[in-house]
Amino acid sequence: MTYFIWTAIVIIALSMIALLFRVVKGPTPSDRVIALDALGIALICLVGLFSILVDTSFFLEIILLLAILSFIGTIAFSKFIEKGDIITRDDSR
């Protein structure tokens, strides 16, 4: 069981390296935002696997917290790319 979890951790770490390559190399800002979002998801997977590995349930709130923060960050970045500013005073103009 431990070998299985460590194999999954290594695979996710390799995919995080590939996503990091896309963050560094990505030609447009949209590529970097998508890669950062996927990095957040991979980080969630790592937290879940490590919480299985150290046999505790205290990390499960961090998973939901990371998902919320990744969602809000991605939405803020995409609104910045779309409109030029994140928080607008009046949306109807």
């Binding site: 709130e61 919320i68 809000i72 939405i75 803020a76 609104k79 607008t88 949306d91």
Partner: peptide
């Protein structure tokens, strides 16, 4: 369990920030 007033306040603020981003400030 882990948590408390500080993290709860930050998560509440991030929920309101999500509303502000999706709609506008007014």
């Amino acid at each position: 369990t882990p948590g408390g007033g500080f993290v709860g306040g930050l998560v509440t603020a991030s929920a309101i920030v999500l509303l502000i981003i999706a709609f506008d400030l007014n």
